[in-house]
């Protein structure tokens, strides 16, 4: 959203972030406070964040599309630098005690060369993209058609991570969900409603269904994001299911839908010829 705004104000203890983006466990609060602390050159502990209620904070646009870090974090980095210029060498708390509250706000503008219209919602919706590659190694039981992912490797490039341990957690969590989507999670719809919305009949991966994961974060700072960051929120959930399906295809099964449950695989046709799946091909030929 081109109109997205973010603000920063001094408080008796330091500064308060004013944004509409919500913390739902993904680490937004920590990550935004890190950006502000680093932008201002103050300790992390002196940064608090207002409740994301637009009666007290500006409209920063929605918490969607992996944009919070890159777009809203970017606005906050600008706010922090502007505030630093205004207050000079004093700390925000000292400035607040002497001069009263200082409030700065920044509004998002599309980067050079990017076209977007808020009227028609047309144009280049994204200023940049993150990149990922997933590798799933699977074991398929030829009798029961049970599939296990034995090892999973995720390589992701999303600029420079602001908080590498939390970014790793986003990738690991999304990868596990993606593998669950590929092999277990079957939404049954009846009369426009999900008929299996309980954990007893909608099965998600446990510790025993989730393989060891290798996560590689390729650092490639992006000039348009705060401290070189892009977004990592959603990307890591996109690749795992295709990777698992491709592994099953490599094993000779013509899988075209998910979840690839044993019941579904039992009636999945075999591929005629697959590199490295000569057994399957031979069996086919013998029939």
């Amino acid at each position: 959203m081109l109109g997205s705004r973010a603000g920063l104000e001094t408080t008796p203890a330091g500064v308060r972030i004013l944004v509409a983006n919500t913390e739902i466990g993904q680490g937004t609060r920590t990550m935004l406070a890190q950006i502000v602390a680093d932008g201002l050159g103050i300790p992390y502990e002196q940064v608090e964040i207002a409740q994301p209620d637009t009666s007290v904070v500006p409209d920063s646009g929605p918490t969607v599309a992996s944009r919070t870090c890159m777009v809203v974090g970017g606005l906050l980095e600008k706010c922090a630098r502007r505030m630093r210029e205004r207050i000079g060498h004093t700390s925000p708390a000292e400035y607040h005690a002497r001069q009263g509250r200082l409030h700065v706000e920044e509004q998002y503008a599309a980067p050079e060369g990017r076209r977007w219209s808020d009227e028609t919602y047309r144009g280049d919706a994204y200023a940049t993209y993150a990149w990922g590659c997933d590798v799933a190694e699977v074991e398929l039981d030829p009798v029961t058609h049970e599939t296990r992912v034995t090892k999973f490797t995720a390589v992701q490039e999303f600029g420079r991570p602001i908080h590498p341990a939390m970014a790793r957690g986003q990738i690991e969590g999304a990868s596990a969900q993606g593998m669950g989507w590929a092999l277990l999670e079957h939404v049954v719809m009846r009369d426009g409603q999900m008929a299996n919305a309980q954990l007893t009949n909608y099965v998600i991966p446990t510790t025993l269904d989730t393989p060891p994961m290798d996560v590689v974060m390729l650092e490639n700072p992006y000039a348009g994001g705060p401290f070189g960051a892009k977004g990592v929120g959603e990307m890591p959930i996109d690749g795992p299911a295709p990777a698992v399906v491709n592994a099953l295809r490599h094993a000779g099964l013509d899988v075209r839908s998910i979840p690839a449950t044993p019941e579904a695989l039992l009636s999945t046709p075999r591929l005629r010829s697959v590199n490295g799946a000569s057994d399957a091909a031979q069996e086919d030929g013998a029939r």
Partner: peptide, 23 residues
Amino acid sequence: TLARVREALAGNLCRCTGYEAIH
């Protein structure tokens, strides 16, 4: 062992972490 950790936590679902950080 890691296998023992997985077994002990097999009854605790986590949707967010993918379990790796918990292990």
